[in-house]
Write a protein that binds this DNA or RNA. Sequence first.
DNA 1: TCTCCATGAGTTTTT
DNA 2: CTCATGGAGA
Length: 692
Amino acid sequence: MNWLATLNESQLKAVIHPGGPLFVVAGAGTGKTKTLTSRIAYLIMNGVEAKRILAVTFTNKAAREMKQRVIEMTGPHAMSVWLYTFHAFGLQILRNHIAELPYGYRPNFTVIDEDDGKKIIQDQIKELGLDTKEYSIRLLKNLISLYKSNRMDGFERTDEEKIYQKYQDYLKENQLLDFDDLLLYTLELLEEIPSVRERYQSHFEHVLVDEFQDTDAIQYKILKILGTKHKNVFVVGDPDQSIYAFRGANYENAKLFEKDFGAEKIILEQNYRSTNQILKAANQLIQYNFDRPSAKNLESDLGVGEPPIYHHAESDYRETFFVVNEIHKLTQRGYQYDDIAVLYRNNALSRLFEDSFIKSSIPYIIYGGLSFYERKEIKDAIAYIRVILDQSQDFYLKRIVNVPKRSIGLVSLQKLEQQARELGVSMFDAIDYVKVTPQAKGGLLEFKKLILEMSRDFSDMVELSQITPYLMEKTGYLEMLKAEGSEISDDRINNLRELQSVFTRGDIYYEGSFVEKLTEQLDQIALYTDQDQDVEEFNHVKLSTYHQVKGLEFKVVFMVVMEENIFPSDRVLMQPAELEEERRIAYVGITRAKEKLYMSYADKRMVYGSMRYSYPSRFIQESRVKLDQPKTIYEGDYVSHLLKQGDKVEHNVFGIGVVIRVDDDIATIAFAMPHGIKRILESHPAIRKIMK
DNA sequence: TCTCCATGAGTTTTT
DNA sequence: CTCATGGAGA
């Protein structure tokens, strides 16, 4: 147990806690994950059976990594620790017990994603004869989500209530569950079915929760029920890093937990990540929040370090220039692209930086955006697989019945759905009976034949890796993409190849028959989110929102577009509570930085094609270390240049030259004839400075 | 039924 | 500005 020796005093105290409820308040960079994994390992070493430990994390990736670490610490029997996200845990429970709820769900239900949910809502609005233009589907989905998770009492408009009812009915009829249902029905099982409640209450001797500040009301209720019997509930979190309140995360849960369970509290303040000027900026900023259940001050042994650098740019365009310039300087000083992250408030802001990185040949990778499994071609492939496995999956049938085109239009599809409803059978079974145009009928029959054939072939399959090539060929999907011949279709083909490797990995990972493996793989895919992907750490600058880098760290952090109305965002009539959440987001941003922190903003920027003027974010002032701050603020023009008069440079094409002058970021350079005098961006990748 | 064009709507953050 | 959706014509 030599790893116990690597813990500091507070961490050790938490790890060897005798039992009973404990709240570990772990500031940024204070070894939160280490403490949690050590705790699990410690429990196992002390004879607690691994399968009687439940640990819940925020992302599937975190769960995976944590399990890996525990196994490294205690050996392979730690495999049977229950390490899941709340949603994945719910899925496990529901696969075993959902039939005990009075809704007619069977254990082989399907989990739908956000996008599917929206589509269903839209269909329901149309079915009710309401105008889809009058409703924002996105808002409605949010509303329903809020309602389902107990965070809202009712709907303001009766139409909304009707749509909700119809949506929920559709899900039940089609054996579908959305993300909220995974938690909602799990809670219902625990609350309403005593045998289920008692079984799991007794089973889990220890319950541990990571990122506790991001749990919502339903999750807390689940936790409370599970922890009631043994009372060994160990939660780790940092109220100052609660940035999901908009989604219902309730860090009041911290207060509730202390009250409900009479939990003890241990605070971890020793930071192992950042130098102290960075921590000072973070500490100073967060002090502007009034609502801080566990105020703390971070400090580290990593020295004073460099002060944060602030940059005031003229325009959005110039701001990206500044960042590009600085990145070039940093890499010349020995930093790797890997060490650098550019963080912003929302995904839309990435584009500008992306463009300038392309122009300057800076390798980058964008976190977020469309996740792999949200891509059209991937969703189509999954839909095919679902229908092949179960022909009553109307929702997925609708998605692919006309992909590739089989001349089945909207009208025919509606007729088919209608027919199915009248006969009380699935759309698939209704194909034989429906009356549509001859082409459409032909298409439908062709589709039916195809599915049945594929279904037969599936029963002969052994390896998941056989699926994708078979599917692409047999359905004509590959042919369709090849015929398009565009760049996009090439990407799609590549994505489908990537799906192939997902399945290949699934073959190694999962056990059992082909169908069992496939079912597990599909569950895994249903719960997969952007945050779970292993971004290859192949020397790229990372572009990301603050939310997506929670838990990560970088040597250098650029916080860009630090402007009022963007960050903090201008969501009409900002409530004080929302402003405090924005401030916590900024706090998360600052505390990602290990060595260098930049904050930049521009006076004007293009928004929706028109120019918008703005002021620097209040968070800049609030975090600024006031005492004898050295001159680090570049107002207006760049103070530093890559090149100066008299420098010798080498250009990839023009050869050796001498810098005559530098204006802003344009260098005028004299090259040997026949090239002569050129004006070139000083950060241009083709230029290298020659050291004397 | 499919394809093309115009219009209109949208930007937090995501399990 | 950019993307998605819906309507009209082939």
